[in-house]
Amino acid sequence: MEHKLPALPFAKDALAPIISAETIDYHYGKHHATYVANLNKLIPGTEFENLTLDQIVKKATPGGLFNNAAQVWNHTFYWNCLSPKGGGEPTGALADAIKKAFGTFAQFQEKFAATAVGTFGSGWAWLVKNPDGSLAIESTSNAGTPLTTAKKPLLTCDVWEHAYYIDYRNARAGYVEKFWKLANWSFVADNLK
């Protein structure tokens, strides 16, 4: 089964100036596309050939196949977490769950940002739902993803340098601060359901 690069859920310049069209050109058009192309090269003739992307990520052992498959999944999820109409604060059940876990929305933001900025090297910051329904924040390295665990990913922020280097250089904290203006809370709320 050939895996396809999903369409971006917004125009490539729609997130500017927070995330520039140039960043999207590389991040989506090169990095994400390369992970898809590598995945398609790695699976023919293997037990993974006819599995869905989710199944491959969950089944693959550490190595090239896992890295490429998980990075395809993580990036598709990341694009959906961003929206030119994003920002503001979550409402309803999501807002309640965040308050229950972190006290206030501001405290949640602070903790999530600290995790994103503190992830050393390449990786991702995540808001996840635990099996008991509570929310938690975690960090994964490189292609690591909550998809391989019992936790359900709700929101992610890509902190590989390629996600922000063109627009923010070394200033990861500046990128993470602006990330909130794009956070797609309706997508996150759907993931919580």
């Binding site: 390449s122 590989w160 340098e161 280097y165 070394n170």
Partner: peptide, 8 residues
């Protein structure tokens, strides 16, 4: 080979 070594 960190991306910051070559990305620009």
């Amino acid at each position: 080979v960190w991306e910051h070594a070559y990305y620009l």
